[in-house]
Design a protein around this nucleic acid. Structure first.
Length: 553
RNA sequence: GCCCCCGUAGCUCAGGAGGAUAGAGCACGAGAUUCCUAAUCUCGGUGCCGCAGGUUCGAAUCCUGCCGGGGGCACCA
């Protein structure tokens, strides 16, 4: 038995097709009206058609409903025309209830679809320089990227997650020198620590480790050599810490891609050569420029500096070429919003490489405004003043942090108040949702204690689920696959959180008004069956957010 | 100066591919548990949807301008 929305879509499409003039395509949209009086579902398709048919929308609605009624759909109670031309559908409660087995039989797979049909998508995210610990802003990017990957996977895309490591260039040199200077300090030397170097205390810790492992051996080396060793040492250690932090944050990557490797393999040179041959490069003032203005960027960009060094952008073009050549249909980059100016040139590069710029999707994640009890906390990586992701995880927990990150659009500014986030109270929406899951688990526990033998393979008397709140819940459960699909389509994980909140809120209300385990064994069985479906959907939705579904709280 | 994002209830934010009377949480006040977890529920009201024009039968949503906030405009990464 298909979900109601699917059946309605099919029915409506068939009826609308009859009326469509040749050459006009129209996919009827079905929404859930804000007001209950407007039915379970509604469509504005008659008004959409009015323009094409040059007819009164209500008259069109009459024709559509007439056509629908002739096919006598068994799941509809009535169809109404209302307002300027809306068609409102009232579904039989029993028809809703009869969709429950579909959810329960699908179980863990409920909400999954083949929307992506195996299309290959790569999601690149976090990609923080290994020059310091991850901070809370990286945490947001990590949560968004990871959740998005989970959602796309659930929709039948073949997803690969990647982290691009900027392990070469000027920042690494500065990192190396920072460590070297801290090391010399430990040896009692008087050093002048430059202002633009990494001042965080973690560098001093690293220097101690370095001293433990290598003794005074670096002291005798030429400075350049020592700095190189230090850069590699620090880069590796910090990257390892980053990996550990991300693992604890439940974020995993299929591939860690080194920027250095793309230089070493000659791909950066090859890319520049390729662009040159295609006439997209020119020389000016000793530097080599990429003609990105030819692809609607504001200005041309340097790829090789006059001192012969390639720019970060050059490596980035090579990297994106590498990604595209791996055969992904779409590559998604998740960047901090402060990099938004970078989007046009990257798209320009994709086009110059002979690919469709649409294949590159950039998601900009706004910076996090970190607060403690309403007081803003200033952050700066170099100055070493920042709250790390690890500190946030330790203080507020992974679930709360992830949920907060995923409860806002990624392109909107986020106030993250540590004091609020760590409170295990009703101020914290994550517990509201998790509590519903724990509550459901507890109901099954109690049922078992009372000797109720619930077996979800036995389909109960579904007609008993005729309370309006039950119908509302079942309708919401039926929406889950579409919510997941729209999250995937718009690349917006926060849609899941909002849906979850809605669903859970309806459940809590239902719980307070009706008893699931009651006198009547048939009714109890039916309600437990509904409870099981709720449990499944809440769990599946939380999984997509990477938030745990506790059985007890 | 130019470009991008944002501006919705006291606060934090949804809605944004145009549709019916614009929503949620928090905060504030009052209530609910002999019974499955009170981290729950019920009730209470608030909005020139930044401002001004335009497109449309219809605009929080699309277009233009302005105001306010943030960000970006390197031969840095």
């Amino acid at each position: 038995m298909a979900l109601i929305r699917d059946r309605l879509t099919e029915l409506l499409t068939k009826s609308v097709m009859e009326l469509l003039p040749p050459g006009i395509q129209l996919e009827p949209e079905i929404e859930i009206p804000a007001q209950k009086e407007h039915g379970h579902y509604a469509t504005n398709v008659a008004m959409m058609l009015a323009r094409h048919l040059r007819k009164n929308p209500r008259a069109i609605a009459e024709e559509i409903t007439a056509h629908i009624n002739t096919s006598e759909p068994d799941f509809l109670e009535k169809v109404e025309i209302a307002g300027p031309g809306f068609i409102n559908f009232f579904v039989k409660p029993q028809a809703f209830a009869e969709t429950l087995p579909e959810i329960i039989e699908a179980g863990f797979d409920y909400g999954r679809s083949d929307m992506g049909k195996g299309t290959r998508i790569q999601v690149e995210f976090v990609s923080a320089n290994p020059t310091g610990p991850l901070h809370i802003g990286h945490g947001r990017g990590a949560a968004v990227g990871d959740s998005l990957a989970r959602i796309l996977q659930a929709c039948g895309y073949e997803v690969e997650r990647e982290y691009y490591i900027n392990d070469t260039g000027k920042q690494m040199e500065i990192l190396g020198r920072s460590l070297y200077l801290r090391y010399l300090e430990l040896l009692g030397k008087d050093v002048n620590f430059p202002d633009d170097h990494y001042k965080g205390s973690y560098m001093i810790d690293l220097a101690r480790q370095l001293l433990d492992e290598k003794g005074r051996s670096l002291e005798e080396l030429p400075e350049e050599k020592a700095i190189n060793i230090c850069a590699e040492y620090a880069g590796n250690k910090i990257l390892q810490d980053i990996k550990n932090d991300l693992a604890e944050f439940r974020v995993f990557f299929d591939r860690w891609f080194s920027e250095k490797s793309i230089h070493d393999s000659g791909e950066v040179k090859e890319t520049i050569e390729f662009l040159k041959q295609r006439g997209f490069l020119y020389e000016k003032e000793g530097a080599t420029w990429f003609k990105s203005t030819a692809f609607s960027d504001e200005k041309d960009r340097v790829v090789v500096r006059s001192n012969g060094a390639t720019t970060y952008f050059a490596a980035d073009i090579a990297y994106h070429w590498n990604k595209l050549k791996r055969g992904f249909d779409t590559i998604i980059d998740i960047w901090g919003a402060d990099h938004h100016g970078y989007v046009p040139r990257m798209k320009a590069a994709v086009k110059a490489l002979g690919y469709n710029p649409e294949q590159l999707q950039v998601i900009l994640v706004q910076l996090v405004n970190l607060l403690r009890a309403g007081e803003q906390i200033a952050m700066s990586t170099r100055a070493g003043k920042f709250v790390t992701l690890r500190e946030v995880m330790d203080e507020v927990g992974v679930d709360a942090a992830r949920y907060i990150f995923l409860t806002r659009r990624s392109d909107s500014h986020l106030d993250f108040d540590l004091e609020v986030a760590k409170q295990q109270s009703n101020e914290n929406p994550v517990y509201y949702v998790q509590y519903a899951h724990a509550r459901l688990c507890s109901i099954f526990e109690v049922a078992r204690e009372r000797g109720i033998n619930f077996d979800e393979r036995n389909i109960p008397e579904l007609g008993l689920l005729d309370q309006p709140q039950e119908t509302t819940l079942i309708q919401l459960l039926g929406e889950f696959p579409y919510v997941v699909q729209s999250s995937a389509k718009f690349l917006e994980p926060h849609r899941i959180s909002y849906y979850l909140h809605d669903l859970v809120s309806s459940f809590h209300s239902y719980y307070n008004h009706h008893r699931i385990i009651g006198e009547n064994p048939l009714l109890t069985h039916a309600r437990l069956y509904l409870a099981r479906a709720l449990q499944i959907v809440i769990k599946n939705a939380l999984d997509l957010l990477g938030v745990s579904a506790p059985e007890k709280m």
